[in-house]
Write a protein that binds this DNA or RNA. Sequence first.
DNA 1: AATTATTTTTAAGTAAGCTTAAATATTTTA
DNA 2: TAAAATATTTAAGCTTACTTAAAAATAATT
Lengths: 218, 218
Amino acid sequence: MSVAIENFVKAIYNNDKHDIKDTKPGNIAKKLGISNAAATDMAKKLAAKDLLNYEKYQALQLTEKGTKMALNVVRKHRLWEAFLFKMFDMSLHDIHREAELLEHQTSDLLAKKISEYLGHPKFDPHGDPIPNANGEITTEDTSISLSEAIEGKTYTISRLMSDDKEFFDFCAQNQIKYRNTLTVSKQFISNKMTQISIGSNTIVLNEDFTKIIYVDEN
Amino acid sequence: MSVAIENFVKAIYNNDKHDIKDTKPGNIAKKLGISNAAATDMAKKLAAKDLLNYEKYQALQLTEKGTKMALNVVRKHRLWEAFLFKMFDMSLHDIHREAELLEHQTSDLLAKKISEYLGHPKFDPHGDPIPNANGEITTEDTSISLSEAIEGKTYTISRLMSDDKEFFDFCAQNQIKYRNTLTVSKQFISNKMTQISIGSNTIVLNEDFTKIIYVDEN
DNA sequence: AATTATTTTTAAGTAAGCTTAAATATTTTA
DNA sequence: TAAAATATTTAAGCTTACTTAAAAATAATT
């Protein structure tokens, strides 16, 4: 299966899992940087391969086969992230970019070797769970987005759900990092902003960021 | 530049360097597993990009630009070989196969990181020299092929120039390994075979193998 | 509910990287 | 050196993964 197909299936998987947004061709197209027409085309092609269910004007749904493929790619991506993070001094964003390419050129054997070397990690450096070789995610996700966190409570960052350089640069400058602790000092409900204290800093984050920072209550 | 182009340029470079064979489209086509017609087509296309010189019915010659590209790919390939060899318990052939894919999806930054991690190695696990980031090979090659070695002398294996699984399996079973020592007990000139003793074994090799095993006199 | 805006789909077309078949050169060998 | 064998090139065609433009359907807004 081609890189284009792997990316398409992965985009549906990620959109489906993480975003509130639906999985109609247009949304997938936007994620992949291709035209809507190309996405519709691809959807039909993948339906013929039993990777997803396609009905005109409806959201795309991965079949079991499609989900398995997506999880295999996601596994390789997250293993590479964990591995490169451990081995080399590179920014999370750079690591993400490398993983984005390497994930498609990694045999199951090499993925297994990397996983073994790392002691079969359950999470990558963003806090994203790493599926096992059978495509199963065995860790349950109890975390909530920072936008839903409660004033006065203290949380541990469990996930940074993004692939945007700006965001990661911001995180790096503000101690926002997987497994760091923060306290929600104020939720500005009407403005959809959240004030947190982390380390010695106090930061006000808007919704763009609080929706992709996931936390677990301490 | 695409994977197809990188592989094409690399094939010319390797053919030119290692083999006695010429670099006409047919030979490159055979190496890449594509038709002669496709190779001719590609040659014209790459000539237009100033990666090689193409004249009808003549051997293909890489330009400086083409050579630089080839060396960049070769560098990444050999760095991956060295890295995977160090990190994981995998056969040389498996490592080669992974490197063959990863080489095209590796940024210059990651290559640099891998090289640094390994202490800027000069050779990969086959004994092939690793070009530096500027595409320079700073080590001179004093080795000769086993087919040219002299009876009675003792040598150190400096290079195993192949990507064939059968060959590597044979090597693994017979202690034929980069940096191992062997003695040439007999050269059967007319049969083009060579008898060596390596470890406690005595082996007779035919020309197919003695031409790709490179050695340095002790 | 009707109109407007947005999405999705269809249709036609493009570039890359191949293929096979036939024509043309070159090389080998008898 | 002429014939036979082999290689290279040209030509036509295919698939994948896109594109833009227009038509059709859905969703949003007043």
